[in-house]
Nucleic acid binder design. Structure first.
Lengths: 132, 132
DNA sequence: CATGGACCTTCCCATCATGGTAAGGTCAAG
DNA sequence: CTTGACCTTACCATGATGGGAAGGTCCATG
């Protein structure tokens, strides 16, 4: 099938399929006489794997490892788990950072009148005033 | 003072100070005969404001608005609060997305033996298997 | 006075994942 | 034979930041 159908069926845009090929995340697709890329079931499977991994927040580098492990019959689940737990740790760090921002902002917004007057603890805080 | 000292005192790297100038977030610094940029207290204050806003996750576009509001004596705190609440909403959306990823991954990792055998629900899930 | 080193300048490139657009080739149906 | 849907490559953009090269400025010390 052509790249458009592969994109539709896998949920990965044609643009990204070409990109993944360019960076070596997937092997170069075979070409028809027209020079159009040609995809089969195996390719679809691989693309959907990548899409799911992206949806779970794995980076391209991590997905490269996951794909290798997927195809490695002698893999140990420990390797997969270790990679996953490292990713979970990164997610938690991000969540924590964002949660802290949210808490600070929610605190400031709560203290802000939100009326026609200019006085605003949010601006004050950004301008360097100590917390009230 | 020179850009290096301004960077040190404001907590914004010299690289970023030049960048902020290039994109018009801060006015072009005056220059000495040497062509070196020259900064004063007012600039430091502005840079620290930007740094604090970045630390709270505001984008450059939002900071542009915040700076405008900061300098606008006739601002209403409602405007600042509205901008802040929109940002809080964006943070919450991100937190939710990341939290969902984490939950799914934690669930899968828990179900994964993490031993020498290849069987792994994480890989199975990425490969398209329905959840066990 | 000369030299070294610490600082500055601009310019270009890289990240990460993704999208847009332009200019042109292929192909099937009308 | 044209139209339209599809494909190709190539370049540019995002957002915020860093790295590095090649070269200019300036001050202190030998």
């Amino acid at each position: 099938m052509q790249i458009g159908e592969a994109a539709r069926l896998s949920g990965v845009s044609a643009k990204m399929i070409r990109h993944y090929e360019a960076i070596g995340l997937i092997p170069s697709a075979s070409r028809r006489d027209s020079n159009y890329r040609d995809y089969g079931h195996h390719d679809l499977h691989r693309l959907a794997f990548i899409r799911r991994a992206r949806e779970l927040g794995f980076s391209i580098a991590e997905i490269r490892d996951l794909l290798r492990l997927w195809g490695d019959r002698s893999r140990s689940s420990a390797e997969v788990k270790q990679l996953t737990e490292a990713h979970i740790g990164a997610l938690e760090a991000k969540i924590e950072a964002l949660t802290e921002m949210r808490a600070t902002l929610a605190h400031l917004a709560e203290a802000c009148g939100g009326d026609d007057r200019p006085d605003c603890p949010i601006i004050d805080r950004l301008a360097g005033a100590a917390m009230a």
